[in-house]
């Protein structure tokens, strides 16, 4: 197991900067999630770590080695693609054994078969070794891809949206399994996704990317609780943070779950009051989403969302002015021009 260090990585395609200068340190054994919307450069960043793309600038270290100029096979990495990229003409055993043969690290046939079996056992597919990929379900294919990735005992495991081809129910299960499995192996893992739930649930730390740049790095809860800018604030959370202009230079943000009826606020907490009309209610079972408009400092109405957990049973009449509030410590302030978070107190 090794750590990974990226310094000033820049990758261009023609005139487009897919990765525009990324510094990142991934600790040994860490599960790092790279999160961002499509086109933000997260996959390119991962392919650069893998060695499938050569960066124009910057340096990549895996452990103590500078691997910037090395081909993928000399980097000690393994990768699982979104499509799983199983070789359709090989059996499951052939697929899992392919890296061992290709890297010539395991010339002994019996030992190779044994390692293939062990890898298959690790993801509970040892009964499928003779099958062809097309005879497998989506979940089984994903496991084959993972077995193939771990069979050569890589130092770093790269996962490119490996769960996005699974149906929703299976995904939650696969998430749990993947995490448990990564803990067991203790392998340094980089996981790319555009799904914030996956990111929040899996990552030891999350890297939020946009337009080829890192927006924020940190543990999931810290990023959620203290977003560094308005992009992170609105990208994370479902729905994202409400934003509201409070002056020409400052906007205020608060999460939907913090906009609550006054009587639901912690007793005695200092709060900002909001009077608004709820125009639509979505009942999601576990939550209620309330939609309405709140005026900003210029008097312009802005769509605002409140999320009430199901244990808040208070009746919300439509199109009637209701008294809501947000606790002061749940308010976030951002610079309007840059979108950057303002230090506490600056806004006030």
């Amino acid at each position: 197991m090794s750590d990974v260090n990226l310094q000033g990585i820049v990758k261009r395609f023609g005139d487009v900067q897919a990765v525009a200068g990324v510094d990142l340190h991934i600790s040994s054994g860490e599960f790092l999630v790279v999160l961002g919307p499509s086109g933000c450069g997260k996959t390119t960043l991962m392919r650069t770590i893998a060695g499938l793309e050569k960066p124009e600038e910057g340096q990549i270290n895996i452990g103590a080695r500078d691997v910037t100029a090395l081909p993928p096979r000399k980097r000690g990495i393994a990768m699982v693609f979104q499509s799983y990229a199983l070789y359709p003409h090989m059996s499951v055993a052939g697929n899992i054994g392919f890296p061992l043969k290709a890297q010539r690290r395991c010339p002994d046939r019996t030992e190779r078969e044994q390692r293939v079996y062990q890898a298959a056992q690790m993801v509970s597919i040892e009964h499928l070794l003779d099958r062809r990929p097309r005879q497998l379900s989506g979940g089984e294919r994903q496991r084959v891809a993972i077995a193939r990735a771990i069979v050569s005992q890589p130092e770093v495991l790269l996962l490119d949206e490996p769960l996005s081809n699974l149906d929703a129910k299976l995904r939650a299960y696969a998430r749990d399994e993947l995490k448990g499995f990564q803990r067991k192996l203790g392998i340094t893992t980089v996981f790319v996704t555009h799904d914030q739930i996956e990111a929040m649930g899996l990552g030891d730390r999350i890297v939020v990317m946009r337009d080829g740049l890192v927006q924020q790095v940190g543990p999931p809860q810290a990023i959620y609780d203290r977003p560094q800018n308005t992009f992170v604030a609105t990208f994370l959370g479902s729905p994202g943070m409400n934003l509201q202009l409070v002056s020409e230079r400052v906007q205020r943000g608060f999460r939907p779950e913090h906009l609550l009826p006054l009587e639901e606020l912690p007793p005695g907490a200092a709060h900002e009051p909001f009077s608004w009309r709820v125009t639509r209610v979505e009942n999601l079972g576990s939550d209620r989403l309330l939609y309405g408009h709140i005026a900003d400092y210029r008097g312009e109405m802005q769509l605002t969302v409140s999320r009430l957990p199901s244990n808040v049973t208070i009746d919300i009449p439509l199109d009637t002015v209701c008294e809501f509030g947000v606790a002061h410590d749940q308010l976030h302030f951002f610079d309007v021009a840059s979108g950057e978070r303002l230090a506490e107190g600056v806004a006030a």
Binding site: G51, L52, P72, R73, M79, F81, S83, A85, P99
Partner: peptide
Amino acid sequence: PTDLLDQAEVDGSRYFRTLFQV
């Protein structure tokens, strides 16, 4: 699919192995 060829590269396969086995 390019994924498949990228996968072969990541798996450590060189030119002729990729040619003849993939």
